[in-house]
């Protein structure tokens, strides 16, 4: 009896180690940005899909399976965000007029509000393609981000630039492995229409000057079909179809520093090919707020440029009422955000 008791005492329970993701990038010393993508209010089916697509886009530093409840308010997310090291919120909401996307920095803001003019889901993009591409480790690394046309000198655009630059971890070009650069997010600002095109592509590298046949042979490890050939040398020398002209585009070729995969050798030229993954968004920046869905309005598309040091709640409420009467949901959230501020 006693022995058994002893045994029980001696039993060693291995402490459960919580594997912590490194909060700080060891090379650049910068905090790795993490994000939450969630919805405010009830979303219809396609928008839910879009939310899922955005989560996938934000991988790996995002909560892919974030569970939301109806009664969750912004403060709940904010409370979780602190200990988890979440730095950005992407909030989807919907009104009668249009769906909206808000990108906010936590915990203090600022918040950019985009009106989603048009959107297509990743599934539809894949359906529209002849050969949709999705390698296994496509979402294992954060995407690169390319911002184009944002340098018009507007303050709000500058802010948007910084916001989007910091939404993904920075890259150190001395240590980065090119094999981790699999995806790219493009934001293209159109000056005339004031719309931002949001695209998501996968990056593929192909050696230049190698026939398709050889490339496939190296890639697939399969015995090639030589029935139609007279001699084995034909397999190497005979040109393939005319699709090689695309790869000859000089602007899209790079010289690699190291080997990448089986086909892309270092010191040979490779062509960069992009294929869209989706989702596809057309955004319009309509509002910039100082706080997290609250605070003074820095920029308003409809009301023109407002004074930046507009702090009084009364004035702000008036502004909101005058300029944003269509956007009920946002007003709701704003009041919510104010509540948070008050309680704090």
């Amino acid at each position: 009896m006693a022995r058994i008791g002893n045994k029980k005492k001696q039993r060693f329970v291995k402490p459960i180690k919580v594997k912590k993701q490194s909060e700080v990038d060891h090379v650049t010393g910068e905090k790795i940005p993490k994000s939450f993508v969630f919805s405010r209010g009830k979303l219809p089916g396609p928008l839910k899909q879009l939310q899922m697509d955005l989560r996938k886009l934000m991988l790996p530093y995002t909560a892919l399976n974030l569970k939301e409840k109806k009664r969750n308010n912004l403060k709940d997310y904010l409370n979780v965000a602190g200990p988890m090291g979440v730095t950005h919120f992407l909030m989807l909401s919907k009104t009668e007029t249009a769906p909206y996307l808000r990108v906010a920095r936590t915990p203090q803001g600022p918040t950019l509000t985009f009106k989603i003019q048009e959107y297509s889901l990743a599934v539809e993009i894949a359906q529209s393609q002849l050969r949709p591409r999705c390698p296994k480790d496509l979402f294992k690394n954060p995407p690169l981000i390319v911002l184009s046309g944002f340098g018009t000198g507007d303050q709000h655009l500058k802010l948007a630039t910084i916001m989007f630059q910091n939404i993904f971890p920075a890259i150190d070009i001395n240590t980065v492995k090119l094999s981790t650069c699999q995806r790219i997010v493009l934001l293209n600002y159109n000056k005339d229409t004031k719309l931002i095109d949001f695209r998501h592509y996968s990056i593929r590298l192909q050696p230049v000057g190698v026939t398709r046949r050889l490339r496939k042979f190296v890639q697939n490890h399969q015995v090639p079909d030589l029935r139609s050939l007279q001699d084995v040398s034909d397999f190497v020398t005979k040109a393939g179809y005319g699709s090689e002209s695309e790869a000859d585009d000089e602007a899209a070729t790079v010289t690699l520093a190291s080997d990448l995969g089986r086909v892309n050798q270092a010191s040979t030229k490779s062509a960069v090919k992009l294929q869209e993954i989706g989702p596809r968004l057309t955004l319009q920046l309509i509002k910039v707020e100082e706080g997290l869905c609250s605070g003074g309005i820095i920029f308003n598309e409809y009301g023109g440029e407002k004074k930046q040091d507009n702090k009084s709640d009364k004035k702000k409420a008036q502004e909101v009422a005058s300029s944003e009467d269509e956007d009920e949901d946002m007003n709701e959230d704003e009041s919510e955000g104010q509540e948070v501020d008050d309680e704090d």
Partner: peptide, 9 residues
């Protein structure tokens, strides 16, 4: 986007 990627690479 391609230009951007090429530049980075």
């Amino acid at each position: 986007a391609t230009k951007g990627v090429v530049k980075l690479f």
